[in-house]
Design a protein around this nucleic acid. Structure first.
Length: 420
DNA sequence: TCTGGGGTCCTAGGACCC
DNA sequence: TCTGGGGTCCTAGGACCC
């Protein structure tokens, strides 16, 4: 969108890295600009409460992702604020990932708008990694209408750093013999896994660049940041990153959350510090569990650990979790567990005022185990056979349920079910 | 209108088992 | 009577990423 693609001059014909990190620029905002010509070339902010995405024109005013909407508008009064259209972004993401997969089967998605691609072994068919990267960018632009930045390097980490440096609408190739020269002058915040807390710890000790980190020695970093972070940072600063591109990674949890807004002061007096009745909270909880379990069933996943996430008036947080004896995607089972956690947390909620509720199910498994469930009939009854069968389908996925055995007081009845 | 919604990974203590 | 070490699972919290 802004400016020409930058291609590093000293590219190599051989020994070149084969990992691409492809990252859509200001993704949500770019989709809005693509779909509404009036937004092109103008500062666009997606999300009114919190900035979900800002176009580069808005970023030029200092608007940043995750910033409060009010301060964003103060920085950039001329910005056009649009509400997010998640379904449009999901569709755009699918289209972009199609382009990725036609480029190479070795695609590892990281999020809705970025992925690693390993293009090693494609040289004879598709050309050098750099040529593939150039074509990938033009394919995404032509076929989906979105600008995308690509970093090319020998390792995942370096490819990601390269795309970050090349943004927006850029291409940056890090040659194998120029890796440390590229890496060491960069600020520590560029290291993957260094956020505000770690950056402050490092800067507090006068460590500002990746090169400084590299001089430090692993033991010093471990004592400063802990075992895992210390080792991780030491390795990255020396450009050690043996991770391969992994195809078909499945996520480990599925969750949903909802912000409730601040507690109205008047309501505090009416119904305690939470400002909401337990019934209000329970309705939100039931809605979240319903959404989560639907998504689990649609994805063919079952899970065992139910996590309740809470946030309070002062923005402090708490989580409570419970692990079930078996994996499930059954709405009522997970709702029961979430209600148990919520009940136990009610005193805390009364004291601190609830501003966000979230439910996540972790410990996910694929729902492919040929389970033979038994459900206590009377729990789902009203004595009604159909609703009991619905409960079984709901819990285990309707296409997976092919036969139900109903055990009565003194008889068994086997009912074949057609998957739908 | 102070601060969304979706995730990952690590740490640390306690229970429990061998 | 006193004394190990190793491993796994669960829970809670926190940093970080997009």
């Amino acid at each position: 969108m802004t400016g020409p693609a930058r291609v590093c001059e000293h590219m190599f014909m051989s020994g070149e890295g084969t990992i691409l990190h492809a990252d859509l620029d200001a993704f949500y905002a770019s989709v809005e600009q693509r779909d509404d010509p009036r937004l092109r070339g103008r500062p666009v902010i997606v999300g009114s409460g919190v900035v979900l995405a800002a176009s580069y024109e808005a970023k030029a005013c200092g608007v940043q992702t995750a910033m409060g909407g009010r301060s964003a508008r103060r920085l950039c009064p001329q910005a056009i604020v649009v509400e997010p259209r998640m379904s449009a972004y999901t569709a755009a993401s699918r289209a972009v990932f199609e382009v990725f997969k036609q480029t190479t089967p070795m695609v590892e998605g990281l999020s809705i708008d970025e992925a690693f691609l390993d293009v090693g072994g494609l040289r004879r068919i598709s050309g050098t990694p750099t040529e593939i990267a150039v074509r990938l960018r033009s394919d995404v632009l032509e076929r989906v209408g979105l600008p995308i930045t690509v970093g090319v390097a020998r390792t995942k980490f370096l490819a990601k750093v390269a795309s970050g440096v090349a943004k927006p609408d850029g291409l940056l190739v890090v040659p194998p013999d120029g890796e440390l020269a590229f890496l060491h002058p960069l600020p520590v915040e560029r290291l993957w896994g260094v956020g505000p807390v770690t950056a402050n710890k490092l800067r507090g000790r006068g460590i500002a660049t990746v090169g400084h980190v590299a001089q430090l020695g692993e033991a010093a970093l471990v004592s400063m940041l802990g075992q895992a972070s210390g080792r991780h940072l030491h390795a990255l600063a020396h450009n050690h990153d043996p991770r391969r591109v992994q195809v078909g990674r499945r996520r480990g949890s599925i969750g949903s959350q909802r912000a409730l807004g601040r507690t109205p002061t008047s309501a505090k007096h009416a119904s305690g510090a939470s400002g909401r009745t337990p019934d209000d909270i329970d309705a939100v909880l039931a809605g979240l569990v319903d959404r989560v379990t639907r998504r689990m069933r649609a994805a063919g996943r079952v899970g065992r650990t139910v996590v309740l996430r809470l946030r309070f008036d002062d923005f402090s947080r708490a989580t409570r979790s419970h692990t079930l004896p078996w994996s499930t995607a059954h709405t009522q089972t997970i709702l029961d567990a979430a209600r148990g956690l919520m009940t136990a947390a009610m005193p805390m909620i009364e004291r601190q005022g609830l501003t966000l509720v979230g439910v996540a199910v972790g410990n996910l498994d694929n729902d492919d185990r040929g389970v033979q469930p038994e459900l206590p009939f009377d729990r789902y009854s009203g004595g009604d056979l159909d609703s009991a069968l619905d409960a079984v389908r709901d819990r285990f996925g309707s296409s997976a349920v092919t036969r139900a055995v109903l055990l009565g007081r003194d008889q068994g009845l086997s009912v074949p079910l057609l998957p739908d």
